[in-house]
Amino acid sequence: MAGPVVSRRREVSGGSARSLLTTLLGEYVLPSAAPVWTSTLVDVLALFDVEEKAARQALARTAAEGWLRSDRVGRRVRWTLTEPGRRLLAEGASRIYGFGSGSREWDGQWLVVLVSVPESMRDLRHKLRTRLSWAGFGTPTAGVWITPHPAAEADAKLILDELDLSSQAMSFLAGYGALGSERSMVTSAWDLADVGARYQRFIDEFRDLSPATPDEVLRAQAMLVHEWRRFPFLDPQLPAALLPPKWTGTTATALFNDLHVRWRGPAQERWSELAAE
């Protein structure tokens, strides 16, 4: 059976039961390392208006993908993260909590990858576009992929190797020349207006949120992480010199970090109470 994998579609999608369950596993089950009852997960998912049937289906499918294993204690069932599931969730947590907080200094060097796929091979073209975009690359014109992060070449090579395209690809490092506009190239390569609008919606949703009860804090904390999970797959983390003025990503990052610190303790305490029932 294939092991668990991270799906970009699930990461950037809305509040499906399986996507919400992944957030709960990463935020509450991973740190404790303790098994969790089916009833606990069903009850917490109910806070997000997920019906019991959908919650149980999400559990079964997540287990079938290799993230969880179950064991029966009397008439009750409890779930434990598998080792591959634990590893992927730990990697995800590192990506989520560290995202947006790194240095935006830049030496002006671009990594450029040239690779073309015939239009007739639509499935391969789609896979290439999806996976390079996920890795933070932008494409200002057909067959050209760019990133201001030279270290991403290792990711590009892995992707091209797996798609059997490395032999027909070329890569090099370069500074932008005298022709055209570097900012216009960036605008063509990435839809920063869409990413900025998504950041603004995140700010609008959470800026004035004041959860009062323990259940409200747990739900708010989980939703905060759940919504933030999308941005590492949407934002290429461009250097400050290439970003629009008053970039909403900066404000959103500060808001996420502040709220996550503020809500995490009470939310974990409420989770522990529910898990002990």
Rank of each mutant, 00 (worst) to 15 (best):
K157Y: 10
W228C: 06
Q57K: 12
A178E: 12
P244A: 08
R201D: 10
R61S: 12
M223V: 06
L30H: 06
A156V: 13
A174N: 03
R229C: 12
F231A: 08
E119P: 00
V44E: 00
L68D: 08
A55L: 04
P31I: 02
A54N: 09
L124A: 05
L243P: 01
R72T: 11
A55H: 00
S16P: 04
S32T: 14
E269Q: 15
L89H: 07
R201N: 09
V50T: 12
V50P: 05
F233G: 03
S70A: 13
I146N: 02
L59M: 01
A17M: 03
Q168D: 03
E65C: 12
A193F: 01
S167R: 15
R75L: 13
M223C: 10
W271C: 03
L160T: 05
F231P: 03
H260F: 11
R122M: 02
V217Y: 07
L209F: 00
S133A: 15
T250D: 15
G100I: 03
M185R: 09
R229M: 15
P236E: 04
A55F: 02
T141D: 00
A189E: 06
R201M: 05
L238A: 02
G108R: 02
R219D: 08
R56F: 00
R207Q: 11
E105P: 00
A46K: 00
L128Y: 04
L158H: 15
G26D: 03
A197T: 03
P244H: 07
W190N: 03
R18M: 08
R95M: 14
R69E: 14
I96Q: 14
